[in-house]
Simulated scan of single mutants.
Amino acid sequence: MRKFFAATIAAVSLAAALTAPAAAQTPIKIMVGGIDKQIYLPAKLAAQLGFFKEQGLDVELFNSTSGSQAATALLAREVQGVVGFYDHTIDLQSKGKFITSVVQFAIAPGEVVLVKAADADKLKDPANWKGQALGVTGLGSATDFLTRALAAKAGLKMQDYTLVPVGAGDTFLASMQQGKIVSGMTTEPTVARAVKNGTAKVGIDLRTPESTRAALGGDYPAACLYMDRAWMEANKETAQKVVNAFVKTLKWMNTHSPEEIAAQMPKDYYAGELDLYVQGLREGKPQYSVDGMMPAGAPESVLSVLNSFSPNLKGKTIDLAKTYTTDFVVKANATN
């Protein structure tokens, strides 16, 4: 009889365990300023590898056409995080809005200035952009900031050229093919596609820390995850879990080949050309951080670059300590 009851209790316990609902996952919404761009690849890759679920997170990724739109969504409390460029944290603080980078994906912009193939020798020098239409993903985006910084370094003023929002991918390529722009800043996989079909050539390469320093005069850490500072401070446990997932993703990327990374991504991200996608990953791999940390002295460098052209920063004091934190990343690295 005792054996019967013991067996019955064990069976009931097993059935209860099998039918019990899974532990509730914490929902969080993150907007990406171009989810199929390789500069923001860690966002989708973390989901593909299951690292969010591992942390007990139910992450919903949203796509936007540019970083400026994504930042707007964050300020409107439509999302809890944005995968975009670190420079937005400085620009928005100048407007009284406090957002904070919690993990750094990239230590270089990963962007490329493409120039019209027929006039490449001339247009690769920003000093020759005077009177020209230059393509950016969106006005107020990081490509806007970087284009203006390069022009200012070459001695041009804002009224000397026109910025045209053309997005990325097919819309960027069409704008250059149709002559709407003669130069434009974009990222992979658009870069490889434009060069292969002969539409454009590489004018300025910002895919490595070294080439970025040569072009801008200093470091320019770019892709990151930033959050509204007040929300971050009120939800530190959730923020830590998100950072844990991203740091694990960056470490995974550092130990896997471009082919292995590409194999994890949705096939429609290849734009029909897997070989070009892999090529872009190989050439752009130096941009990615291996641990999610903010490089020493880099925030000061970004502020200096933005100060070279931005009227938003004139007369403003920026508290760089509030534009980023390494607290979450340090803890994530200790456990990953």
Results as ranks from 00 to 15, higher is better:
206 L>I: 08
219 D>G: 07
144 D>C: 01
55 Q>P: 01
325 T>Y: 05
197 N>G: 04
21 P>R: 11
101 S>F: 05
83 V>M: 01
267 K>G: 04
200 A>L: 02
231 W>F: 08
90 I>L: 12
264 Q>N: 13
252 W>G: 10
204 I>Y: 01
261 I>Q: 09
139 L>F: 08
232 M>S: 09
296 A>L: 14
12 V>I: 14
44 K>T: 14
130 K>A: 14
52 F>L: 04
47 A>M: 13
66 S>L: 00
64 S>K: 08
12 V>G: 09
22 A>Y: 08
179 G>W: 02
81 G>N: 04
186 T>H: 09
290 V>E: 12
212 T>K: 13
332 A>T: 00
17 A>F: 10
255 T>I: 13
277 Y>W: 15
195 V>D: 06
242 V>M: 05
142 A>G: 11
148 R>G: 03
7 A>D: 14
291 D>W: 08
289 S>W: 10
269 Y>L: 03
310 S>G: 10
9 I>H: 00
75 L>I: 06
161 Y>F: 15
188 E>Q: 11
58 D>H: 04
220 Y>V: 04
270 Y>Q: 15
212 T>V: 11
277 Y>P: 11
281 L>A: 05
300 E>R: 01
326 T>Q: 14
91 D>F: 05
91 D>P: 01
173 L>C: 04
98 F>L: 14
82 V>D: 00
111 E>C: 02
282 R>D: 11
292 G>E: 03
74 L>M: 01
21 P>I: 09
103 V>E: 00
21 P>S: 12
100 T>M: 09
292 G>W: 00
65 T>E: 07
305 V>R: 03
124 K>L: 04
57 L>Q: 01
85 F>D: 06
256 H>P: 02
283 E>P: 01
318 I>M: 12
326 T>W: 05
315 G>Q: 09
330 V>C: 04
30 I>N: 05
279 Q>W: 11
5 F>K: 10
265 M>V: 06
106 A>C: 07
9 I>N: 04
27 P>M: 12
46 A>F: 11
267 K>V: 15
223 A>Y: 02
247 V>Q: 07
256 H>A: 10
41 L>R: 00
37 K>H: 02
17 A>I: 10
